[in-house]
C-alpha cells in the first residue's frame, strides 16, 4: 500500500500542525518533544503567560499518554502500545490532540470522570482540585487523577473527548484540548 503523503501534508498544513508523533511514548521522547515545543513557542514570541499555559497543558497531556502506556502489556501487541499526539495553532488558538488505546472495561469509568469534570464551574474546579490533591491517593505510576482537572482549570474550556470502538478488548480514546489566547 502506498500512502498518499501529500494528503497527510495537506491536512497537517491546513490545521497548522507544529509537531506530531505516533509511536511508543517514552520518558526520553517526552524530554525531546518538550524541548522542541519550548523553542517553537519562543520563536513565535508568545507572551510568557500563553507560553506557560501551553507548556503546562502539554506536559499534562503527554504524561497522561506516558502513564497509560503501561496499561497495555508489552507482549500484547506493538500496535496497541502506540499513541498519537499533535499540536497546532489555528486562529490564535492552540489545539492539542492526543489518542491512545484504552481497555474496554475502563471506558465507562474514564467517561464518567471526564463528564463530571465538565459539569464544574471555575470555582468548583478549584475546590475539586484541592480536595483530590489533599485526599486523593497517588498511584505508583505517579499520576494522581489531577491531570484532567488541571487541564480543565488552566484552559477554562470543557474537555472534548471521544471513544471509538476498536475490537472486543480495546477502544481508542481521543482528547482535543483548546487553549485560547
Amino acid at each position: 500500500m502506498m500512502l498518499d503523503i501529500y494528503d497527510f501534508y495537506d491536512k497537517m498544513e491546513r490545521n497548522n500542525i507544529m509537531l506530531s508523533f505516533k509511536g511508543d511514548i517514552t520518558s526520553e521522547l517526552l524530554t525531546s518533544i518538550l524541548q522542541i515545543m519550548e523553542s517553537k513557542l519562543d520563536n513565535l514570541q508568545e507572551e510568557p503567560k500563553i507560553k506557560k499555559k501551553v507548556y503546562n497543558v502539554l506536559v499534562e497531556c503527554l504524561q497522561n499518554l506516558y502513564h497509560h502506556m503501561d496499561e497495555v502489556a508489552p507482549e500484547q501487541n506493538d500496535v496497541i502500545r502506540s499513541a498519537i499526539f499533535m499540536i497546532g495553532k489555528l486562529d490564535n488558538q492552540y489545539n492539542i490532540v492526543t489518542g491512545n488505546y484504552i481497555k474496554k472495561e475502563n471506558v465507562e469509568g474514564l467517561k464518567k470522570r471526564l463528564e463530571d469534570i465538565n459539569l464544574l464551574s471555575k470555582e468548583e474546579l478549584k475546590e475539586y482540585y484541592k480536595a483530590v490533591l489533599n485526599n486523593g491517593e497517588m498511584s505508583l505510576k505517579g499520576g494522581g487523577g489531577l491531570g484532567m482537572i488541571d487541564i480543565a482549570r488552566k484552559t477554562g474550556e470543557k474537555l472534548n473527548f471521544n471513544f471509538s470502538p476498536v475490537d472486543d478488548k480495546f477502544s481508542f480514546f481521543s482528547l482535543n484540548i483548546k487553549i485560547s489566547q
Partner: peptide, 13 residues
C-alpha cells in the same frame, strides 16, 4: 518554580 506538573504537586504537598 517555573513549571510543575500534577504529579509533582502531590509530592510538594
Amino acid at each position: 518554580l517555573e513549571y510543575f506538573n500534577t504529579s509533582s504537586s502531590k509530592c510538594i504537598l
